[in-house]
Write a protein that binds this DNA or RNA. Structure first.
Length: 425
RNA sequence: GGAGAGGUGGCCGAGUCGGCUGAAGGCGAUCGCCUGCUAAGCGAUUAAGGGGGUUUUAAGCCUCCUUCGAGGGUUCGAAUCCCUCCCUCUCCGCCA
């Protein structure tokens, strides 16, 4: 959520910035409601001050045995007026919230303008797509032939877009999770977390998953106020909700493996084959809580940490900076890392790394007390996948396939896998 | 799931026949004094959010409102009474 003072003091600047996302922000309506809100506050607080004062007088009068009936009667009617004003105020605050909570973050100046992914800009590329001396197969065919991916039985047990991994397939999935976590904790300095996989609605709201648009994506439990984790960003970012950290605790760099669940409500017909778009998928997440001064550099570092995995797996990738119209709701700047996927004959998103500035922290009420003293400030948050496990799985078997349908295991995974090559048994 | 106890400030911990208790006391922290340095000692300060005023903005200052797990209620007035919910602890049950 954006800073209300900013909406109040620089509406034109905000309007212009949100316009870059193709959004017409109802800031005039905001200004009107905001003014009325403050008028009501002045009115109601004046009455409350009077009530507090007279209530004290009543106490004194009663103590000395005087009759306070007149004052009590006056306060009774005053109380009713206060109640009415409070209701009116609450009504306006609900309307204000509706506006404010639906406003996305404003893009940073260096973010390119554009309405969709065609305006994203490539910032770097690494590795060369391999030249196959044969017709390469898609991972869903490779996986089925090797008996390591069984989508029919996944659908039998759950429904479509759920997959059963078997044998070396299950092992590869586990190897990737371990490899990612070991790298981030061992060399990149992140602390590993294993949070709850069910999260309550307050946590979902905090990270913005319950907005009108996002709600349909979530799996909700019927009998409890709980949702299946849609991304570890939710439980991990929420661990500090409503807290004031001290500056010497920062920066906090966290990583977590967690299964993630999405209904893919709007994705019918997209990525229907293979592991690319599943209802249940594994992901290792990177989350940072940092000071405003460092968040830009921290995002670069976080993105590099995610890219490092692809380098070590020797998978070709490119990194793009998303244009203003293609960024997620809470982000002020996002890098997508895209891995080369022969079956798509294209690069496919495997990680999305964002700087939220104080947008999430404001909504989640996560602050820190500056070491120099003074008022608490909102932290900044960064977050990115490091990486999406299923998509990495797909990229590995496609890029490392051999003509006979076997898969050469990338060097860095061999001791996790116990084999150098995956073959059909 | 059943029975009982409890949820107060950065922490510990007072506070029920409702009224200067936004909150005693202690610890911690910060600043100052003292000290050759450290420790000890002495003094002061030390919750957050939101309004209004002052100020060129900010800071600061003045003032008011709200907040004692969350939400509702009773009352002129609630940390204190009532209701609902959440969480923690103990015992029992159940289970990996």
């Amino acid at each position: 959520m954006l800073d209300i003072k900013r909406l109040r003091n620089e509406p034109e600047e905000v309007k212009q910035a949100l316009g870059r996302r193709g959004i017409e922000a109802p800031l005039d309506e905001f200004a009107e409601l905001d003014t009325r809100r403050r008028e009501l506050i002045v009115a109601v607080e004046e009455k409350k001050a009077l009530r507090n004062q007279v209530s004290d007088e009543i106490a004194v009068a009663k103590k000395s045995g005087e009759d306070a009936a007149e004052k009590i009667a006056a306060m009774k009617s005053l109380g009713e007026k206060i109640k009415a004003l409070d209701l009116a105020l609450k009504d306006i605050e609900i309307k204000l919230d509706e506006i404010i909570l639906e406003l996305p973050n404003t893009p940073l100046p260096e973010v390119p303008d554009g309405v969709d992914e065609s305006a994203n800009i490539m910032v770097r590329t690494w590795g060369e797509p391999r030249e196959f001396g044969f017709e390469p197969k898609a991972h869903w065919d490779l996986g089925a032939d090797l008996g390591i991916i069984d989508q029919d039985r996944g659908a039998k047990v759950a429904e479509s877009r759920f997959t059963l991994l078997r044998g070396m397939g299950a092992r590869l999935e586990r190897a990737l999770i371990n490899y990612f976590l070991n790298l981030h904790t061992g060399e990149h300095g992140y602390t590993e977390l294993f949070p709850p996989i069910l999260v309550n609605s307050e946590s979902m709201r905090g990270t913005g998953q319950l907005s009108k648009f996002a709600q349909a994506e979530m799996y909700k439990l019927r009998d409890d106020d709980l949702y299946l984790n849609p991304t570890a960003e939710v439980p991990v970012t929420n661990i500090y909700r409503d807290e004031i950290l001290s500056e010497n605790e920062l920066p906090i760099h966290l990583t977590a493996y967690l299964p993630s669940f999405r209904r893919e409500a709007g994705a019918a017909g997209r990525d229907t084959r293979g592991l690319i778009r599943q209802h249940q998928f594994n992901k290792v997440e990177l989350v940072k809580f940092i000071t405003p001064e460092t968040s830009a550099d921290e995002l670069e570092a976080l993105t590099a940490n995610a890219e490092e995995i692809l380098k070590r797996l020797e998978l070709p990738y490119r990194t793009v900076v998303l244009c203003s119209g293609d960024m997620g709701f809470a982000s002020a700047k996002t890098y997508d890392i895209e891995v080369w996927l022969p079956s798509y004959n294209d690069y496919k998103e495997i990680s999305s790394c964002s700087n939220y500035l104080d947008f999430q922290a404001r909504r989640l009420n996560i602050r820190y007390r500056p070491a120099a003293g003074g008022k608490p400030r909102f932290v900044h948050t960064n977050n990115g996948s490091g990486l999406a496990v299923g998509r990495t799985f797909a990229a590995i078997i496609e890029n490392y396939q051999n003509e006979d349908g076997s898969i050469t295991v990338p060097e860095v995974l061999r001791h996790y896998m116990g084999v150098d090559i995956i073959t059909a048994d």
